[in-house]
Design a protein around this nucleic acid. Sequence first.
DNA 1: CTTTTGACCTGACAGC
DNA 2: TGCTGTCAGGTCAAAA
Length: 271
Amino acid sequence: MPELPEVETTRRGLAPHCSGRHLLAAVVRNPKLRWPVPDDLSARVAGQHIIQIDRRGKYLIINLSHGALILHLGMSGSLRVLDSATPAGVHDHVDLILDNHTCIRLRDPRRFGAVLWTQNDAARHPLLENLGPEPLSDAFDGAYLYRISRGRSSAIKQFVMDSHQVVGVGNIYANEALFSAGIRPGTAAGRLSKTRCTTLVAAIQETLARAIEAGGSSLRDFVNSAGEPGYFQQQYKVYGRSGEPCRVCGQLIRLRRQGQRSTFYCPKCQN
DNA sequence: CTTTTGACCTGACAGC
DNA sequence: TGCTGTCAGGTCAAAA
């Protein structure tokens, strides 16, 4: 499920229910996620104050009074705030128990997600310290993309999906943004003009910002909600539409594999 | 150094 | 129905 807009929507949904609360314990039903959930997690977090919840790329960071939890939703993870007495389902692997009879519950059928603990500043964690800039920050602009892409032969789609260049651009939005920018996904990154880099950055930012807006507006009741983000109902321009007519020109949308991910593009609108 | 490939998992779905 | 194969919103680690 989670691309950056859903992670941000999750963060916004979680925050009002946890900020200022204390954690009583953690319940780990299955520690076998992307990396093992620390077996002393509960002891580490018990009694700690939740300062605030941040996001870095698709990582969620729950800052505690001493240390932080680093969460990732992988391909299939979701977080909800529930009454802690709510029976856990088969894929409900971790609960963070709050001091008001509620819990933050991680459900993750595919178990590509993560729950990690760090004693230090989460930004210094090995998984986070070498990440590229946030896509919606001023640091991510046309000049930056132009500069880092010089001499790079990899396809622009894979390049912008590389978290070391810029974080948070997943498969759906990479496809959508490249369509918006009119750029063929297989184009070598190093061959993009500065103008096209600027166009692409703007397209990425607009695509993500609109999806976050859609997700946020659908977020009525995060507690006990089904967790259906609004952006999921968005009408995609190319993603998942191979063989269907382009919404702009009517040409049939094409599908190809790039780095074992599906790439969708319009052969006429994207060059 | 860059680029590509493999790995981690389960569930949904198409086709036989 | 039940089996097999394919695909899925991520991304790190290892190989080339």
